[in-house]
């Protein structure tokens, strides 16, 4: 992928080239591409005059960041305590079987990726799964295929609008 130099430069200036804002810059990059592309990191490192190891340090320390491309429909299964005791582990396994990727992976067609998160703050609805910005509560193993079906075609029907 081509590095979008203009976007990066503009972003850096937006933060006044402040080295303390590097995590925020990485967040902006992640928000745009849903992962941290290697070349973009290299460009950021030279533009900000910081070692690239620092950027990789952040990228692997914080959960938000991914060094691999994420799927078009990133699936997150909540593994917070409330969701765990209500059977979230089995939900993950069902999704793994359903879309044939393991936790932490992205499908070859870049349609899905599967991750776990620790508590989305909707514990009252446990177990909880999000697909992109859509949130599904009180999930059961048998509900999974129906939910995933919505995303198989590229047409999207969002059911919630947390923006």
């Amino acid at each position: 992928m081509e590095v979008e130099v203009e976007f990066i430069d503009e972003m850096i200036n937006g933060y006044n080239r402040d080295k303390r804002a590097i995590v925020s810059m990485l967040q902006d990059i992640q928000d745009k591409y849903y992962y941290l592309p290697e070349d973009t990191l290299a460009y950021l490192s030279s533009a900000m005059e910081v070692p690239i190891s620092l950027l990789y340090g952040f990228a692997t320390f914080y959960r938000t960041f991914s060094l691999q491309p994420r799927g078009k429909h990133p699936i997150s299964v909540c593994m917070g305590t409330a969701c765990h005791v209500r059977g979230a582990g089995r939900i993950i396994e069902k999704i793994e079987r359903e879309i044939d990727i393991k936790l932490g992976e992205t499908s070859d067609d870049l349609l899905y990726s599967l991750d776990e998160v620790h508590c989305l703050g909707c514990c009252g609805l446990a177990p909880v799964v999000t697909v992109g910005d859509d949130l599904y509560g009180k999930i059961t193993v048998t509900k999974i295929p129906g939910i995933l079906k919505k995303y198989k075609t590229s047409k999207e029907e969002p059911v919630s609008q947390i923006d």
Binding site: L120, G121, C122, G124, L125, D134, L135, Y136, G137, V159, S160, Q161, I162
Partner: peptide, 10 residues
């Protein structure tokens, strides 16, 4: 709240 929104509050 987030819980209700995800169930279609809007």
């Amino acid at each position: 709240g987030t819980g209700c929104v995800s169930n279609g509050a809007f």
